[in-house]
């Protein structure tokens, strides 16, 4: 059985891998396949509700559309900075890599903050779910309140789709943060959590949404403890795959949720 085994440390002890790529990248592609089905199911639920509801409301005025367009611009920019981060990582320019990653995070954070403000505004104006605490002392817009009352599917699908996407962006920010700064990112994350939680009134989406950061910090701490490694170019590339996917999902949600529900005057 002389030729039945080979030592571990000589090249090509394995069959060539799929597309000659490495495991982590395949793993991420597989995750994205699965995640696109998760989003697919939500989009299916949205379409199901929309098709079965006569007189689907179109309450979004130019103000919301402009806001959402700015958010979209943030995300598109972040995709560009992400590409630059990947390029820097391939060129082994550690400083540029960190900078571009932080720029991507900044754009992503801009998106989340704008989106959270949009949520606050809509909730305050009456397009809300029974779960959200009412906003004190704010003028309820008759239009949004009546949408929530007559077609509950509208706020349901809106908050589910955008909420799920926002969750993905937030986790993406955490992911990139850990790749860029590793352990140093954990205290930053905890600080952000405290600021968002304590710095906002109890009815604000930031207030209760902040706990996502706490949960993420705990999970990241565990993972960093289990795998205390230096992230290399392949990790940046894989993180980039995730980030682009999240951007891509927004390119479905933006037209479906916003543009197709815009009030065309």
């Amino acid at each position: 059985m002389a030729d039945s085994v080979v030592p571990h440390d000589i090249p090509s002890v394995y069959e060539p891998s799929l597309f000659g790529t490495y495991s982590k990248k395949i793993g991420m592609w597989l995750f994205l396949m699965s995640d696109s089905l998760t989003f697919g199911a939500l989009l299916y639920a949205y379409s199901y509700g929309r098709i079965s509801t006569p007189n689907w409301p179109t309450p979004f005025h130019s103000e919301s559309i402009v806001n959402a367009t700015i958010m979209t611009a943030f995300l598109l920019t972040s995709s560009l900075t992400m590409v630059l981060a990947v390029r820097a990582s391939v060129q082994k320019d550690a400083k540029a890599q960190t900078l571009w990653l932080l720029a991507t995070i900044a754009c992503g954070a801009g998106f989340v903050i704008l989106h959270g403000m949009e949520w606050s505004k809509l909730i305050a104006e009456g397009m809300t779910l029974p779960f959200f605490p009412p906003v004190p002392g704010h003028e309820v817009s008759a239009e949004f309140a009546s949408v929530a009352k007559t077609v509950p599917q509208f706020p349901s699908t809106f908050f589910t789709l955008t909420g799920m996407h926002m969750l993905h962006v937030t986790l993406g920010i955490v992911y990139l943060g850990v790749v860029a700064l590793r352990k140093k990112f954990i205290p930053i994350l905890l600080a952000l959590w405290l600021i968002a939680w304590l710095g906002t009134p109890s009815y604000s989406p930031f207030h209760y949404g902040a706990h996502v950061l706490l949960a993420a910090a705990i999970v990241c701490a565990i993972i960093l403890w289990l795998k205390p490694k230096v992230y290399d170019a392949s990790d940046v590339e894989v993180a980039g795959l995730y980030w682009h996917f999240v951007d891509l999902v927004w390119m479905f949600i933006f037209p479906l949720v916003y543009l197709m529900s815009a009030r065309i005057l």
Partner: peptide, 16 residues
């Protein structure tokens, strides 16, 4: 450490 084939396509890593 941790045992993925990460980075293998770029640089040959010991299979240990």
């Amino acid at each position: 450490a941790g045992g993925t084939r990460g980075g293998e396509a770029i640089t040959m890593v010991s299979h240990d």
